[in-house]
Nucleic acid binder design. Sequence first.
DNA 1: AATATTCTTTACTTATTAGTCAACTAAATG
DNA 2: CATTTAGTTGACTAATAAGTAAAGAATATT
Lengths: 203, 203
Amino acid sequence: MGRKSNAKERIIAAAVRNFWDRSYGSVSVDNLCEEAGVNKGSVYHFFTSKSAIIFASIDAWWKDLQGSVIEPAFDPEIAPVQRIENLFRNMSDYQKQKQRDWGKVPGCPFCNLGSELSTKDDDLREKIDDIFDRYKVYLASALQDARDAGELSGDIKNITDAVFGCLCGLILQAKIQDDPAIIANLIPNLRSLITNSGNNPPG
Amino acid sequence: MGRKSNAKERIIAAAVRNFWDRSYGSVSVDNLCEEAGVNKGSVYHFFTSKSAIIFASIDAWWKDLQGSVIEPAFDPEIAPVQRIENLFRNMSDYQKQKQRDWGKVPGCPFCNLGSELSTKDDDLREKIDDIFDRYKVYLASALQDARDAGELSGDIKNITDAVFGCLCGLILQAKIQDDPAIIANLIPNLRSLITNSGNNPPG
DNA sequence: AATATTCTTTACTTATTAGTCAACTAAATG
DNA sequence: CATTTAGTTGACTAATAAGTAAAGAATATT
Protein backbone atom coordinates (compact mmCIF):
# COMPACT_ATOMS: atom_id res chain seq x y z
CA MET A 1 0.00 0.00 0.00
CA GLY A 2 0.89 3.65 -0.09
CA ARG A 3 2.91 5.32 -2.76
CA LYS A 4 5.20 3.49 -5.21
CA SER A 5 8.76 4.55 -5.91
CA ASN A 6 12.05 3.43 -7.32
CA ALA A 7 13.88 6.20 -5.43
CA LYS A 8 15.65 3.74 -3.17
CA GLU A 9 17.11 1.96 -6.18
CA ARG A 10 18.11 5.28 -7.74
CA ILE A 11 19.85 6.33 -4.54
CA ILE A 12 21.73 3.03 -4.36
CA ALA A 13 22.70 3.32 -8.02
CA ALA A 14 24.07 6.80 -7.40
CA ALA A 15 25.93 5.55 -4.32
CA VAL A 16 27.38 2.55 -6.15
CA ARG A 17 28.73 4.80 -8.84
CA ASN A 18 29.95 7.73 -6.74
CA PHE A 19 31.36 5.97 -3.71
CA TRP A 20 33.27 3.76 -6.10
CA ASP A 21 34.93 6.24 -8.40
CA ARG A 22 35.42 8.92 -5.78
CA SER A 23 35.39 7.81 -2.15
CA TYR A 24 33.10 7.75 0.86
CA GLY A 25 34.48 10.99 2.27
CA SER A 26 34.41 12.80 -1.06
CA VAL A 27 30.75 12.14 -1.81
CA SER A 28 28.06 14.01 0.11
CA VAL A 29 24.46 13.00 0.62
CA ASP A 30 23.56 16.10 -1.40
CA ASN A 31 25.68 14.76 -4.28
CA LEU A 32 23.72 11.52 -4.18
CA CYS A 33 20.42 13.39 -4.09
CA GLU A 34 21.34 15.37 -7.16
CA GLU A 35 22.47 12.32 -9.13
CA ALA A 36 19.50 10.23 -8.06
CA GLY A 37 17.05 13.06 -8.71
CA VAL A 38 15.72 12.84 -5.21
CA ASN A 39 15.20 15.18 -2.27
CA LYS A 40 17.08 14.77 0.93
CA GLY A 41 14.00 13.79 2.87
CA SER A 42 13.59 10.78 0.60
CA VAL A 43 17.10 9.63 1.35
CA TYR A 44 16.40 9.68 5.06
CA HIS A 45 13.08 8.02 4.46
CA PHE A 46 14.86 4.97 3.05
CA PHE A 47 18.13 5.12 4.98
CA THR A 48 18.90 5.95 8.57
CA SER A 49 22.26 7.56 7.78
CA LYS A 50 24.93 8.07 5.16
CA SER A 51 26.66 5.05 6.63
CA ALA A 52 23.60 2.89 5.95
CA ILE A 53 23.83 3.85 2.28
CA ILE A 54 27.36 2.51 2.02
CA PHE A 55 26.31 -0.80 3.52
CA ALA A 56 23.62 -1.08 0.83
CA SER A 57 26.22 -0.20 -1.80
CA ILE A 58 28.48 -3.01 -0.64
CA ASP A 59 25.73 -5.53 -1.22
CA ALA A 60 25.03 -4.08 -4.65
CA TRP A 61 28.74 -4.13 -5.55
CA TRP A 62 28.99 -7.74 -4.52
CA LYS A 63 26.00 -8.79 -6.63
CA ASP A 64 27.40 -6.98 -9.64
CA LEU A 65 30.88 -8.43 -9.23
CA GLN A 66 29.64 -11.89 -8.54
CA GLY A 67 27.42 -11.88 -11.61
CA SER A 68 29.75 -10.23 -14.09
CA VAL A 69 33.23 -11.34 -12.99
CA ILE A 70 33.28 -14.19 -10.49
CA GLU A 71 30.57 -16.62 -11.54
CA PRO A 72 31.56 -16.55 -15.23
CA ALA A 73 35.17 -17.27 -14.24
CA PHE A 74 34.46 -20.17 -11.91
CA ASP A 75 32.69 -22.40 -14.39
CA PRO A 76 33.10 -25.97 -12.98
CA GLU A 77 33.45 -27.29 -16.53
CA ILE A 78 36.76 -25.47 -16.81
CA ALA A 79 40.02 -26.83 -15.37
CA PRO A 80 40.55 -25.53 -11.79
CA VAL A 81 43.69 -23.48 -12.35
CA GLN A 82 42.22 -22.00 -15.49
CA ARG A 83 39.21 -20.77 -13.51
CA ILE A 84 41.57 -18.66 -11.47
CA GLU A 85 43.30 -17.43 -14.59
CA ASN A 86 39.84 -16.48 -15.87
CA LEU A 87 39.21 -14.49 -12.71
CA PHE A 88 42.26 -12.34 -13.36
CA ARG A 89 41.36 -12.00 -17.04
CA ASN A 90 37.75 -11.07 -16.29
CA MET A 91 38.79 -8.59 -13.62
CA SER A 92 41.24 -6.97 -16.00
CA ASP A 93 38.51 -6.67 -18.64
CA TYR A 94 36.03 -5.39 -16.07
CA GLN A 95 38.37 -2.62 -14.94
CA LYS A 96 39.02 -1.78 -18.59
CA GLN A 97 35.30 -1.41 -19.15
CA LYS A 98 34.97 0.87 -16.12
CA GLN A 99 37.91 2.88 -17.39
CA ARG A 100 36.07 3.39 -20.67
CA ASP A 101 32.79 4.27 -18.93
CA TRP A 102 34.11 6.43 -16.13
CA GLY A 103 37.39 7.74 -17.51
CA LYS A 104 39.57 6.11 -14.84
CA VAL A 105 40.34 2.65 -13.51
CA PRO A 106 38.28 2.71 -10.29
CA GLY A 107 39.90 -0.27 -8.58
CA CYS A 108 38.14 -2.64 -6.21
CA PRO A 109 35.30 -0.93 -4.34
CA PHE A 110 35.77 -3.13 -1.27
CA CYS A 111 39.49 -2.50 -1.14
CA ASN A 112 39.00 1.22 -1.64
CA LEU A 113 36.46 1.42 1.13
CA GLY A 114 38.43 -0.85 3.43
CA SER A 115 41.54 1.22 2.93
CA GLU A 116 39.64 4.40 3.69
CA LEU A 117 37.46 3.41 6.61
CA SER A 118 38.23 0.03 8.14
CA THR A 119 40.29 1.49 10.98
CA LYS A 120 37.51 3.97 11.76
CA ASP A 121 34.42 1.77 11.58
CA ASP A 122 34.71 -1.76 12.84
CA ASP A 123 31.29 -2.84 11.55
CA LEU A 124 32.34 -1.79 8.08
CA ARG A 125 35.65 -3.62 8.46
CA GLU A 126 33.78 -6.79 9.38
CA LYS A 127 31.38 -6.38 6.50
CA ILE A 128 34.25 -6.11 4.04
CA ASP A 129 36.02 -9.01 5.71
CA ASP A 130 32.83 -10.97 5.17
CA ILE A 131 32.71 -10.06 1.46
CA PHE A 132 36.34 -11.13 1.13
CA ASP A 133 35.49 -14.47 2.70
CA ARG A 134 32.74 -15.04 0.15
CA TYR A 135 35.20 -14.14 -2.59
CA LYS A 136 37.77 -16.58 -1.24
CA VAL A 137 35.28 -19.45 -1.12
CA TYR A 138 35.41 -19.49 -4.92
CA LEU A 139 39.20 -19.52 -4.93
CA ALA A 140 39.50 -22.15 -2.22
CA SER A 141 37.05 -24.40 -4.02
CA ALA A 142 38.98 -24.20 -7.30
CA LEU A 143 42.22 -24.82 -5.42
CA GLN A 144 40.71 -27.82 -3.69
CA ASP A 145 39.70 -29.21 -7.09
CA ALA A 146 43.26 -28.64 -8.30
CA ARG A 147 44.56 -30.46 -5.27
CA ASP A 148 42.19 -33.36 -5.83
CA ALA A 149 43.55 -33.53 -9.38
CA GLY A 150 47.07 -33.76 -7.95
CA GLU A 151 48.18 -30.40 -9.29
CA LEU A 152 49.30 -28.90 -5.99
CA SER A 153 50.29 -29.91 -2.50
CA GLY A 154 50.51 -26.72 -0.39
CA ASP A 155 48.09 -25.43 2.23
CA ILE A 156 44.84 -24.33 0.57
CA LYS A 157 44.19 -21.45 2.96
CA ASN A 158 47.66 -19.98 2.51
CA ILE A 159 47.51 -20.24 -1.28
CA THR A 160 44.02 -18.74 -1.27
CA ASP A 161 45.26 -15.78 0.75
CA ALA A 162 48.26 -15.39 -1.53
CA VAL A 163 46.25 -15.47 -4.74
CA PHE A 164 43.56 -13.19 -3.34
CA GLY A 165 46.20 -10.82 -2.01
CA CYS A 166 47.79 -10.74 -5.44
CA LEU A 167 44.48 -9.97 -7.07
CA CYS A 168 43.66 -7.07 -4.73
CA GLY A 169 47.19 -5.71 -4.96
CA LEU A 170 47.24 -5.81 -8.75
CA ILE A 171 43.85 -4.12 -8.98
CA LEU A 172 45.29 -1.32 -6.88
CA GLN A 173 48.37 -1.12 -9.10
CA ALA A 174 46.04 -0.96 -12.10
CA LYS A 175 44.20 1.93 -10.45
CA ILE A 176 47.32 3.88 -9.52
CA GLN A 177 48.83 3.43 -12.97
CA ASP A 178 45.41 3.75 -14.62
CA ASP A 179 46.26 0.60 -16.57
CA PRO A 180 44.01 -2.48 -16.27
CA ALA A 181 46.48 -4.69 -18.16
CA ILE A 182 48.62 -5.01 -15.03
CA ILE A 183 46.06 -7.41 -13.63
CA ALA A 184 46.19 -9.71 -16.65
CA ASN A 185 49.98 -9.64 -16.71
CA LEU A 186 50.13 -11.99 -13.74
CA ILE A 187 48.34 -14.75 -15.64
CA PRO A 188 51.50 -16.39 -17.10
CA ASN A 189 52.95 -16.55 -13.57
CA LEU A 190 49.79 -17.61 -11.82
CA ARG A 191 50.06 -21.34 -12.40
CA SER A 192 53.49 -21.57 -10.84
CA LEU A 193 52.40 -19.44 -7.86
CA ILE A 194 49.55 -21.86 -7.28
CA THR A 195 51.04 -25.23 -8.13
CA ASN A 196 54.52 -24.79 -6.69
CA SER A 197 53.47 -23.06 -3.51
CA GLY A 198 55.20 -24.39 -0.44
CA ASN A 199 57.72 -26.35 -2.49
CA ASN A 200 61.28 -25.17 -2.57
CA PRO A 201 62.43 -25.96 -6.07
CA PRO A 202 65.82 -27.65 -6.41
CA GLY A 203 68.86 -25.48 -7.15
CA MET B 1 66.77 35.28 10.99
CA GLY B 2 63.39 35.78 12.58
CA ARG B 3 61.71 33.44 14.92
CA LYS B 4 62.63 29.74 15.31
CA SER B 5 60.10 26.92 15.34
CA ASN B 6 59.63 23.22 14.97
CA ALA B 7 55.92 23.70 14.26
CA LYS B 8 56.25 22.53 10.69
CA GLU B 9 57.74 19.24 11.87
CA ARG B 10 55.02 18.87 14.49
CA ILE B 11 52.33 19.42 11.86
CA ILE B 12 53.90 16.84 9.57
CA ALA B 13 54.21 14.38 12.44
CA ALA B 14 50.52 14.83 13.25
CA ALA B 15 49.64 14.41 9.57
CA VAL B 16 51.78 11.29 9.20
CA ARG B 17 50.03 9.70 12.14
CA ASN B 18 46.45 10.81 11.49
CA PHE B 19 46.23 10.53 7.72
CA TRP B 20 47.65 7.04 8.09
CA ASP B 21 45.44 5.49 10.69
CA ARG B 22 42.30 7.36 9.74
CA SER B 23 42.16 8.76 6.18
CA TYR B 24 42.57 12.02 4.33
CA GLY B 25 38.87 12.79 4.35
CA SER B 26 38.41 11.87 8.00
CA VAL B 27 41.12 14.16 9.34
CA SER B 28 40.51 17.91 9.44
CA VAL B 29 43.09 20.65 9.55
CA ASP B 30 41.70 21.48 12.98
CA ASN B 31 42.45 17.92 14.11
CA LEU B 32 46.03 18.36 13.00
CA CYS B 33 46.28 21.71 14.78
CA GLU B 34 45.09 20.19 18.01
CA GLU B 35 47.47 17.23 17.82
CA ALA B 36 50.43 19.38 16.77
CA GLY B 37 49.67 22.03 19.40
CA VAL B 38 49.55 24.73 16.77
CA ASN B 39 47.12 27.39 15.63
CA LYS B 40 45.51 27.31 12.24
CA GLY B 41 47.39 30.36 11.04
CA SER B 42 50.65 28.50 11.57
CA VAL B 43 49.49 25.65 9.39
CA TYR B 44 48.78 28.05 6.56
CA HIS B 45 52.05 29.81 7.22
CA PHE B 46 53.92 26.61 6.36
CA PHE B 47 51.51 24.99 3.92
CA THR B 48 49.40 26.43 1.13
CA SER B 49 46.56 23.95 1.62
CA LYS B 50 45.48 20.73 3.28
CA SER B 51 46.53 18.99 0.08
CA ALA B 52 50.08 20.33 0.47
CA ILE B 53 50.24 18.69 3.90
CA ILE B 54 49.48 15.28 2.46
CA PHE B 55 52.26 15.65 -0.09
CA ALA B 56 54.68 16.38 2.74
CA SER B 57 53.33 13.35 4.60
CA ILE B 58 54.02 11.11 1.63
CA ASP B 59 57.67 12.10 1.65
CA ALA B 60 57.87 11.49 5.40
CA TRP B 61 56.20 8.09 5.05
CA TRP B 62 58.62 7.09 2.36
CA LYS B 63 61.67 8.06 4.42
CA ASP B 64 60.34 6.12 7.39
CA LEU B 65 59.50 3.05 5.37
CA GLN B 66 62.73 3.12 3.46
CA GLY B 67 64.78 3.38 6.63
CA SER B 68 62.94 0.91 8.80
CA VAL B 69 61.65 -1.72 6.37
CA ILE B 70 63.14 -1.55 2.89
CA GLU B 71 66.84 -0.78 3.34
CA PRO B 72 67.31 -3.36 6.12
CA ALA B 73 65.67 -6.00 3.93
CA PHE B 74 67.68 -5.35 0.79
CA ASP B 75 71.13 -5.95 2.23
CA PRO B 76 73.32 -6.85 -0.79
CA GLU B 77 75.20 -9.35 1.40
CA ILE B 78 72.08 -11.48 1.56
CA ALA B 79 70.99 -13.85 -1.23
CA PRO B 80 68.64 -12.05 -3.67
CA VAL B 81 65.47 -14.06 -3.11
CA GLN B 82 66.01 -13.92 0.62
CA ARG B 83 66.06 -10.11 0.45
CA ILE B 84 62.53 -10.21 -0.88
CA GLU B 85 61.53 -12.69 1.81
CA ASN B 86 62.99 -10.23 4.31
CA LEU B 87 60.84 -7.46 2.87
CA PHE B 88 57.69 -9.43 3.59
CA ARG B 89 58.95 -10.39 7.03
CA ASN B 90 59.93 -6.82 7.91
CA MET B 91 56.64 -5.45 6.63
CA SER B 92 54.73 -7.98 8.69
CA ASP B 93 56.71 -7.00 11.78
CA TYR B 94 56.28 -3.32 11.00
CA GLN B 95 52.51 -3.64 10.77
CA LYS B 96 52.53 -5.63 13.98
CA GLN B 97 54.39 -2.81 15.69
CA LYS B 98 51.89 -0.24 14.41
CA GLN B 99 49.09 -2.48 15.60
CA ARG B 100 50.60 -2.44 19.07
CA ASP B 101 51.17 1.32 19.01
CA TRP B 102 47.93 2.43 17.39
CA GLY B 103 45.53 -0.38 18.24
CA LYS B 104 44.90 -1.39 14.62
CA VAL B 105 46.86 -2.59 11.61
CA PRO B 106 46.99 0.64 9.58
CA GLY B 107 48.02 -0.88 6.25
CA CYS B 108 50.15 0.83 3.64
CA PRO B 109 49.77 4.62 3.75
CA PHE B 110 50.40 4.97 0.01
CA CYS B 111 47.87 2.29 -0.85
CA ASN B 112 45.32 3.78 1.52
CA LEU B 113 45.73 7.22 0.06
CA GLY B 114 45.84 5.97 -3.51
CA SER B 115 42.64 4.00 -2.98
CA GLU B 116 40.93 7.02 -1.50
CA LEU B 117 42.04 9.81 -3.77
CA SER B 118 43.88 8.74 -6.90
CA THR B 119 40.79 9.02 -9.11
CA LYS B 120 40.09 12.51 -7.75
CA ASP B 121 43.54 14.09 -7.79
CA ASP B 122 45.84 13.20 -10.64
CA ASP B 123 48.89 14.90 -9.13
CA LEU B 124 48.49 12.75 -6.07
CA ARG B 125 48.05 9.65 -8.21
CA GLU B 126 51.30 10.44 -9.99
CA LYS B 127 53.09 11.09 -6.73
CA ILE B 128 52.05 7.69 -5.38
CA ASP B 129 52.92 6.07 -8.68
CA ASP B 130 56.36 7.62 -8.29
CA ILE B 131 56.76 6.24 -4.76
CA PHE B 132 55.74 2.82 -6.05
CA ASP B 133 58.41 3.06 -8.73
CA ARG B 134 61.08 3.80 -6.12
CA TYR B 135 59.82 0.82 -4.14
CA LYS B 136 59.99 -1.44 -7.18
CA VAL B 137 63.57 -0.43 -7.96
CA TYR B 138 64.63 -2.42 -4.90
CA LEU B 139 62.61 -5.44 -5.99
CA ALA B 140 63.76 -5.30 -9.59
CA SER B 141 67.37 -5.04 -8.51
CA ALA B 142 67.14 -8.12 -6.28
CA LEU B 143 65.34 -9.99 -9.05
CA GLN B 144 68.04 -9.03 -11.53
CA ASP B 145 70.66 -10.38 -9.12
CA ALA B 146 68.66 -13.60 -8.85
CA ARG B 147 68.50 -13.80 -12.60
CA ASP B 148 72.24 -13.24 -12.90
CA ALA B 149 72.67 -16.13 -10.47
CA GLY B 150 70.54 -18.30 -12.77
CA GLU B 151 67.67 -18.60 -10.31
CA LEU B 152 64.95 -17.35 -12.61
CA SER B 153 64.21 -16.77 -16.26
CA GLY B 154 60.97 -14.78 -16.52
CA ASP B 155 60.50 -11.10 -17.34
CA ILE B 156 61.84 -8.93 -14.50
CA LYS B 157 59.21 -6.21 -14.86
CA ASN B 158 56.32 -8.67 -14.75
CA ILE B 159 57.68 -10.49 -11.73
CA THR B 160 58.37 -7.19 -10.00
CA ASP B 161 54.76 -6.11 -10.56
CA ALA B 162 53.51 -9.49 -9.38
CA VAL B 163 55.58 -9.49 -6.18
CA PHE B 164 54.80 -5.85 -5.44
CA GLY B 165 51.12 -6.45 -6.13
CA CYS B 166 51.20 -9.37 -3.72
CA LEU B 167 52.82 -7.25 -1.05
CA CYS B 168 50.29 -4.42 -1.33
CA GLY B 169 47.39 -6.85 -1.48
CA LEU B 170 48.52 -8.78 1.56
CA ILE B 171 49.05 -5.59 3.55
CA LEU B 172 45.46 -4.70 2.79
CA GLN B 173 44.29 -8.16 3.85
CA ALA B 174 46.27 -7.71 7.05
CA LYS B 175 44.48 -4.42 7.63
CA ILE B 176 40.99 -5.74 6.92
CA GLN B 177 41.54 -8.79 9.12
CA ASP B 178 43.59 -6.78 11.60
CA ASP B 179 46.18 -9.54 11.43
CA PRO B 180 49.75 -8.72 10.33
CA ALA B 181 50.73 -12.40 10.08
CA ILE B 182 48.93 -12.67 6.73
CA ILE B 183 51.83 -10.81 5.15
CA ALA B 184 54.45 -13.22 6.48
CA ASN B 185 52.36 -16.24 5.46
CA LEU B 186 53.31 -15.74 1.83
CA ILE B 187 57.00 -16.25 2.54
CA PRO B 188 57.04 -20.04 2.04
CA ASN B 189 55.37 -19.54 -1.37
CA LEU B 190 57.41 -16.56 -2.43
CA ARG B 191 60.39 -18.39 -3.87
CA SER B 192 58.27 -20.40 -6.25
CA LEU B 193 56.32 -17.32 -7.33
CA ILE B 194 59.60 -15.66 -8.17
CA THR B 195 61.73 -18.45 -9.57
CA ASN B 196 59.09 -20.36 -11.52
CA SER B 197 57.40 -17.34 -13.01
CA GLY B 198 56.65 -17.65 -16.70
CA ASN B 199 57.43 -21.36 -16.69
CA ASN B 200 54.58 -23.74 -17.13
CA PRO B 201 55.53 -26.78 -15.06
CA PRO B 202 54.98 -30.16 -16.71
CA GLY B 203 51.73 -32.00 -16.02
C1' DA C 1 -15.46 7.95 -0.82
C1' DA C 2 -12.86 7.77 3.51
C1' DT C 3 -8.71 6.31 5.45
C1' DA C 4 -4.31 4.57 6.27
C1' DT C 5 0.09 4.07 4.32
C1' DT C 6 4.09 5.24 1.73
C1' DC C 7 6.73 8.44 -0.34
C1' DT C 8 7.98 13.51 -1.60
C1' DT C 9 8.84 18.22 -0.82
C1' DT C 10 11.00 22.09 1.15
C1' DA C 11 12.75 24.75 4.42
C1' DC C 12 15.39 24.32 8.41
C1' DT C 13 19.11 23.45 12.16
C1' DT C 14 23.47 22.74 13.98
C1' DA C 15 28.15 21.54 13.31
C1' DT C 16 32.09 21.46 10.83
C1' DT C 17 34.89 22.57 7.05
C1' DA C 18 39.02 24.85 4.54
C1' DG C 19 41.00 28.90 4.37
C1' DT C 20 41.91 34.24 5.59
C1' DC C 21 43.54 38.20 7.92
C1' DA C 22 45.55 41.66 10.70
C1' DA C 23 47.62 42.36 14.85
C1' DC C 24 51.30 40.55 17.64
C1' DT C 25 55.82 38.44 19.36
C1' DA C 26 60.48 36.70 19.19
C1' DA C 27 64.87 36.62 17.33
C1' DA C 28 68.62 37.98 14.24
C1' DT C 29 70.99 41.72 11.72
C1' DG C 30 72.71 46.33 10.76
C1' DC D 1 68.63 50.10 19.61
C1' DA D 2 65.89 50.05 15.44
C1' DT D 3 64.48 47.31 11.77
C1' DT D 4 63.61 43.29 9.25
C1' DT D 5 62.29 38.66 9.06
C1' DA D 6 59.95 34.46 10.66
C1' DG D 7 56.57 32.62 13.11
C1' DT D 8 52.12 32.99 16.23
C1' DT D 9 47.58 34.16 17.65
C1' DG D 10 42.66 33.89 17.52
C1' DA D 11 38.80 35.61 15.66
C1' DC D 12 36.62 35.58 11.29
C1' DT D 13 34.19 34.09 6.70
C1' DA D 14 31.65 31.54 3.51
C1' DA D 15 30.65 27.08 2.13
C1' DT D 16 29.27 22.71 2.96
C1' DA D 17 28.16 18.87 5.88
C1' DA D 18 24.67 15.45 7.93
C1' DG D 19 20.46 15.13 9.55
C1' DT D 20 15.31 16.86 10.88
C1' DA D 21 10.55 17.89 10.66
C1' DA D 22 6.14 18.97 9.17
C1' DA D 23 3.08 19.41 5.61
C1' DG D 24 1.56 17.54 1.30
C1' DA D 25 0.75 14.08 -2.63
C1' DA D 26 -0.07 9.51 -4.52
C1' DT D 27 -1.78 4.92 -3.95
C1' DA D 28 -3.90 0.81 -1.88
C1' DT D 29 -7.41 -0.91 1.31
C1' DT D 30 -11.85 -0.86 3.60
